[in-house]
Each structure stands twice: as structure tokens, then as C-alpha cells.
């Protein structure tokens, strides 16, 4: 057991957890943040993607001890109140999701992708960058569209700020 202190979606939280606890289970089971999903046991599907200190990471492959002291953003922390993050809005507007199970991980990866690439995203790059996220429903067609759309919106939003 260790005492874990994190900043999750801007709020400080502390929790006691066995050392073998994975970050995803702390988020889901102890903090009730069930938007972060588990889709595999081999760290490949990306359904569990969150941001740790600003970078997209698979939370099923991080022990709580490793995350201790970090800033975590989950899908629940992306929107500002009722206003969707441009990536969330783009997924909705472009039908970038069906069952929704992969969606939180996709969106967290995609936000990180846009941050890293700025406006320089094209279809081929988006497809390569989605390597770590598996979707079984959409055939990725509309996910790619969503990410490209959001990249444009995020550029505009940044310019406006």
C-alpha cells in the first residue's frame, strides 16, 4: 500500500492503493472516472489513454507509483463546463464514433497528436499517429476526418487566444 497524490483534471486527489495498482484502475475504481476504458491486456488498444504531464500515455501500463505526483488529464477533464473541447465536438460532428468505447482514448491521443504536430497534419500522418488506438466500429474513416477537422479548429482557437 502506498499513499498516492495526483492532480487529476485540475483537482488534487490522494488515495491509498496497493503498489500493484495500475493507474487505469485507480482512475476507474477509486476515483470513479470510468470514461477511461480497458480494451486489452497487452498495451495495444489505447482505450485507456490519458495525459500524464501533458503527454498521451496508456494508463493500463503505468503503475500508480510511477504516476505519483503527476498531473493527469482524463476524458472527463477535457471539456470546459458544458463546452466541448474542439476535438470532442469534431468527433460528434463528423460521426467519429459508434459504440463509443474506443472514443475517450482516441480523443486523448488525438489531442496530444494535434499538440505535437500543430497544424501540419495530413491524412497519412493522422493514420500513422493513430497506431496506438484500435477502433472496431468506424473503420477509422470518420475518426481521421474528425482529427483533421479538430486540428483546424484548435489552430483557430489558439490563434484567437
Amino acid at each position: 500500500m502506498s499513499a498516492i497524490k495526483l492532480t487529476v483534471n485540475g483537482k488534487s486527489v490522494s488515495a491509498d492503493a496497493e503498489d500493484r495498482t495500475l493507474l487505469v484502475h485507480l482512475l476507474r475504481d477509486q476515483l470513479g472516472l470510468t470514461g477511461t476504458h480497458v480494451g486489452c491486456d497487452t498495451s495495444q488498444c489505447g482505450a485507456c489513454t490519458v495525459h500524464i504531464d501533458g503527454r498521451a500515455v496508456k494508463s493500463c501500463t503505468v503503475l500508480v507509483g510511477q504516476a505519483n505526483g503527476s498531473k493527469i488529464t482524463t476524458i472527463e477533464g477535457l471539456s470546459r463546463g458544458d463546452e466541448l473541447h474542439p476535438m470532442q465536438a469534431a468527433f460528434r460532428d463528423n460521426h467519429g464514433l459508434q459504440c463509443g468505447y474506443c472514443t475517450p482514448g482516441m480523443i486523448m491521443s488525438a489531442v496530444d497528436m494535434v499538440h505535437r504536430h500543430g497544424g501540419k497534419l495530413d491524412e497519412a500522418t493522422v493514420r500513422q499517429e493513430l497506431e496506438g488506438n484500435i477502433c472496431r466500429c468506424t473503420g477509422y474513416h470518420n475518426i481521421v476526418k474528425s482529427v483533421l477537422d479538430a486540428a483546424g479548429r484548435m489552430k483557430v482557437a489558439n490563434a484567437a487566444e
Binding site: T49, V57, K58, T61, S109, R116, E131, G132
Partner: peptide, 9 residues
């Protein structure tokens, strides 16, 4: 090598 999330860690 791997994917973006793997490369982050």
C-alpha cells in the same frame, strides 16, 4: 518504433 503512447514512456 511502437506507437506514440509507447514512445512517450
Amino acid at each position: 518504433l511502437g506507437d506514440p503512447q509507447v514512445r512517450a514512456r
